[in-house]
Write a protein that binds this DNA or RNA. Structure first.
Lengths: 197, 197
DNA sequence: GTCTATAGGAAGATAGAC
DNA sequence: GTCTATCTTCCTATAGAC
């Protein structure tokens, strides 16, 4: 292991942490489990990170980006406002179906961070990032289709964010992917209908 | 403490657990913290409950009822379908604003239970209970106003459940009660518009 | 930087006197 | 049933040789 720099080890530990969390849950991601996953000795942990809290801050930032990327990618499709909105939501939903355990971890991490005094604002920033992304999406969709929203964008952004988040959580906990997906389509149709020329 | 029966102690421990969880979080609700909150010796725990898991099962069932009660209460109002729906959602939302930490615990408990093999189906049952309650609400609202839903009730129930759940989580994590409340109103208006004579 | 060994504490659960 | 004292295990973090 002498051939890997400390900086590179930090990245390896972040990735190993996410793998452990996805497989076994946030509570099981102890420093011991993490270094074992990364094939490093226990002592390596504390000259790569000052504390476990410092690692978790990086993990939350990394996994939040993972969640957002597929949705923003899907929005690049062509077509009407409604078609593009459906494509974006569809891409996100497919990611949920393909990687349910990774999404479960994002919820666990939010709750975990919110209770740790040093990480409370990291949790808040996570949701502000979701909101900012959906706000940007709504503004862009209106702009390229030459319309405006008949509902204030901050309200609509929270509506969309909450529906996506709530349906994901419902699917993860209850398990009916088809009906939850239909509810997401219903939301896309409704939101698209709120655009005015 | 010799004057309290073991059965009564079980209830006292369940209530003490919820108080600790609301104040300090699920992870901090150790057996030691719980018995201290209930003013009992540590040894009392294990002749009231076989294990911590057995206690948590009872805690989840109890707190799920707490969450549902105010919403079902609010629905008893008079008025049109939309007025009654708004009253029910409004009563629920007021409960969230008044007791945010209690709602935070419900999310923490779901995640916690889902990772414990012995409690996984308790978590699933929690969400099935939410869904069943909202399904019942939608069916009752349609019945008393002589209408039917233009969208399949299972889809609509998931839509409502997810929007409520997502907006609660968003408010707890981000903090803008006013805008989240406005988004909930938007949802109530939309759903009410899906009723057909 | 890198590792082994260990400190120091807190968790759930139990043994055994009363 | 009731309590005190303790067992066992697992955690984060550090000390100190190389």
């Amino acid at each position: 292991m002498a051939r890997v720099s400390a900086a590179a080890r930090r990245e390896l530990l972040i990735e190993a942490t996410i793998r452990v969390m996805v497989r076994d849950g946030v509570a099981k991601a102890t420093t011991r489990a993490i270094v074992a996953e990364a094939n490093m000795p226990l002592g390596a942990f504390h000259y790569c990170f000052r504390s476990k809290e410092e690692l978790l801050e990086r993990v939350i930032e990394t996994i939040t980006d993972h969640t957002l990327d597929p949705a923003l990618e899907g929005l690049r499709a062509d077509g009407s406002l409604e078609e593009r909105l459906r494509a974006g939501l569809g891409a996100y939903w497919q990611h949920v179906l393909d990687h349910p355990d990774e999404h479960r971890v994002t919820y666990e991490l939010t709750q975990y961070a919110l209770r740790e005094s040093g990480l409370a604002d990291v949790a808040k920033r996570q949701y502000q990032t979701y909101l900012a992304a959906n706000t940007k999406v709504l503004e862009t969709l209106a702009e390229v289709s030459g319309t405006t929203w008949s509902v204030p964008v901050p309200v609509l952004a929270r509506y969309v964010t909450a529906l996506i988040d709530g349906l994901t959580l419902l699917y993860l906990n209850e398990g009916d992917a088809g009906t939850a997906g239909a509810a997401l389509d219903l939301g896309a149709e409704y939101v698209a209908g709120l655009a005015r020329i």
